[in-house]
Each structure stands twice: as structure tokens, then as C-alpha cells.
Design a protein around this nucleic acid. Sequence first.
DNA 1: AAGAGGATGAACT
DNA 2: GTTCATCCTCTTG
Length: 218
Amino acid sequence: MLQAAKVAKKLQLPDFLQNSLPEAFYLRDDVTQIARELLGKILATEMDGQICAIRITETEAYRAPDDRACHAWGNRLTPRTRVMFEPGGRAYVYLCYGIHHLFNVVTAPAGMAHAVLVRAGEPVWGEEFMLARRSMRTLTPRLCSGPGALTQALGLRTDAHNNASLLSHSGAVWISDDGRRVPQPLVSQRIGVDYAGPDARRPWRFLMPDTKFVSRPA
DNA sequence: AAGAGGATGAACT
DNA sequence: GTTCATCCTCTTG
């Protein structure tokens, strides 16, 4: 038996979760392009032996220094934004409204504070664990549609996962490519950033068409 | 030291 | 359409 197959069996990890996106995917400096390309990719978590995964259906790009909606606008470096300045391929998870943990993919080389907020997904693995975390009995698009709902379903939290690497499928959180081809995304303004003035109208929200697993229509 | 506000979601009317 | 839970982060003084 091949070594990779042995590892897979030990972790009980299905094949489609094993093709982690390489670091080079994240280190590019075009965050809107990366936000587009993350649609259809698989976001997976493993905690306490529970493996969960969703197909990403909705993303938003945030880009310092010129984007006022970005926490690191003006290259503002604070304890919270520090992780956004690190090299791409890690998680930026922060607490929003005191209640919701929001998950972002850090992108670009070190020093460029770019990130992609993952806003929604369609469950593809470990649905029973996600339902339990959400206190839901049946699968509906609400299970992981909306950035706070998504992190609750996947078990992602600021204290445990901020600055976590996304590069290894043996970690707590990673993103894999199962080869699925995705159609041209829908595009809209970002949600909930009205305070950002003109930047609020940037067309930096991307959605998979033909799915109900999004936080709201384009 | 204090205050304001937030990349939301659920439960209402 | 509205309200509001809940707490961290940042700014101001």
C-alpha cells in the first residue's frame, strides 16, 4: 500500500479532502482573483476526530491599504490585524458583534494585508456534526450560509484558529481542490460595510450561481 | 478609564 | 421591515 493511502486510511480522510491548495495559490497579490477562485473549493476542519467540509459558495475580498472596509485599511497594524500582514495561506478569524467568529483566508506575500472572507458554503462532509453545532435537525441552506453561521457549523473560533495554517490536510483547518469546475461567478457589493463610504460599493463579493447556499442573493 | 461601534443572525411585528 | 444579544478592539482623554 502506498504511503499516502496509509495516511488517508489512518485519518479516515476521503480523497477529495487531500488535495490541499499549495502556498503559491495564496501568495499572489490579486485578492479579488483569489476570492473568485476560492468559489467551489472545499473548506475542511478536523477537531476531536470530527471531519467537516463545505464547498465554498460565497466570498468577499478585502484589501489594504486602499480599501476602507478592510480592518487593515491604511496599513493599520494592530494586535488584531497583525495576522493579515503575514504571508498568505493562513486563517484570520476574529470576533464580530461579540458573538460571531468570522473566517478569512489571508492572501498575498508578507507585508500586504489582503484577505478573503468566506461567507457561505454547501455541506459536503460531516453534515451531522455541523447540524449538532448549529442546533439544527435538518439540512437547510441556513446551515452554513452567512459568515457567522459557517464558522459555527465548522467549529471555527478565534481563540483556536486565528493564524492557523491552511496548507496541510493534517491540520485543524485547510482548503482543498477536488477538481470541480465552477461556472462564472455572480458579483455584487459587499455586505455590511456601509461605513466604508465609496469602498462599500466595490464589486468584491462573489457568489456561485444556481445555489441556495448563499447568505443572500446577489 | 471610558465609550462607541462592529465584514451578524435570530426572532420578532 | 425592526430589535437586540454580546464583547472585543480601537480611539480618545
